[in-house]
Design a binder for these strands. Sequence first.
DNA 1: TTCGATGTTCGATATTATCGAATGTTATTC
DNA 2: GAATAACATTCGATAATATCGAACATCGAA
Lengths: 258, 258
Amino acid sequence: MTERFIQSIVRAADVLELFLSAHQELSVKEISEKLGLSKSTVHGIIKTLEFRGYLQQNPDDLKYRLGMKLFELGNRVSQQFDIGKIARPVIKELVEKLKETVHLVMFERGEVIYIEKLDGPHALRIYSQVGKRAPIHCTGVGKAILAFQAEKEQEQLLAGEMETFTEYTMTNKEEIKKQLESIRKQGYAIDDEEIELGLKCVAAPIFDHKGKVIGAISCAAPKMRINEQRLKTVIKGVKQAANQISQSMGYKDVLVHI
Amino acid sequence: MTERFIQSIVRAADVLELFLSAHQELSVKEISEKLGLSKSTVHGIIKTLEFRGYLQQNPDDLKYRLGMKLFELGNRVSQQFDIGKIARPVIKELVEKLKETVHLVMFERGEVIYIEKLDGPHALRIYSQVGKRAPIHCTGVGKAILAFQAEKEQEQLLAGEMETFTEYTMTNKEEIKKQLESIRKQGYAIDDEEIELGLKCVAAPIFDHKGKVIGAISCAAPKMRINEQRLKTVIKGVKQAANQISQSMGYKDVLVHI
DNA sequence: TTCGATGTTCGATATTATCGAATGTTATTC
DNA sequence: GAATAACATTCGATAATATCGAACATCGAA
């Protein structure tokens, strides 16, 4: 037998995570349908989660939504990565310099997750949300991270099906691996409309004290605002900022990555 | 039989919440001792939680810490209360006016929970943390909220044992209820060293569109900085800001509260 | 190398989560 | 305002499953 996970905990997680996609409020019926479980089973799970503050019921329509306990726990997690604290001032400076939105992401379970963001002054902005995830094969930050993973992990991460978002999304494994090589040489990655038309990003990796890639920062802007001329400035700024963060994290060598 | 909660979910919650108090990393053994469960039981729970991203194991010492999924869910919860969004600019203005730290809290399960805070410019600051909880009987925000609860809820909330923090902490139910009455009349609450010596707070309640108290804001400062003279300014500022937030939440009547 | 301490797996067992049916509850329709 | 409908919630029997203790694995320290 493989691993023996505890069914009801897995199901409780299923319930909670339903709320991550789209709907803010869900009824017992909706949940039981989506999960293919009986109403009474779902009811038991929900009432337990509510009892502990992981869900809360809206007394008006009897529907449920995520509870405060998750907010509490989530904040505790934030405290765990000092990377946020370290990066914040650097990001702020970079935004002021480039006048564009800057993101900080961490690598987690084959995806990137947005930890911090600071919008630039332009009205035309990238929509993004702290706490959200994004794929690794078609984002600047994802590729910046991927490029500095060990060969074995790279293989693994590129093994599954890759989703296509735009006509520019690369899904060919070999093609991507080739690009990763130049990213590794140059120290930055570019996403040119690979996840969303009109969106261009410049990203650079962040290393921890052991020299492991743990995240990345990126400057994201409408393609038209990152022209030939500005590109150099942006690349330089992003790389410098990323290096500064790595250094603060205790990273010693700026050259040897793997 | 009372309610039939699902044991393993309750236990999973127990595990997660151990991480809220003090320790960032816990071993299987520590958890099993703290919860009085067998190592193997705890192991099963932990592995399930890890599988789903609610815990993650440190490969160096095999200990566990809270996982990214909680960060994700926590952020989703943040999006749920627009009160944060609405209150932020009002709070910012108030901090600039009073030059003191301002907190926004919500009422949740018999306690207040810090949703938002903005520090004033002084070096001598109140230590506080978004996501933390505080008791209701000895904080400005707590009393401001309590005062506008229905009689029945008040009774319930004051029923249990009340913890003593300083020599000024009130734990006598009748005494507190008397104070609540004047808070209700005046529209603001004061905490004068009731939870921590040297700390003084002025708080005012926030109501939702139905006229229900849902939270409060407070100005917190070292007692010496809120003297007789400044007190009036602070009270006025806090009340105004709270009213403004309530109004934005759709609250109509500034007079009738219950 | 041995020992000790802790993490992990395994199998038998009794506990417990599960389902379907029955019962409440609330809103809606005529 | 009764009747219906659409849920949420409770209940009880049953089979599934979480639990525990013991055995095993792994890692560091002596």
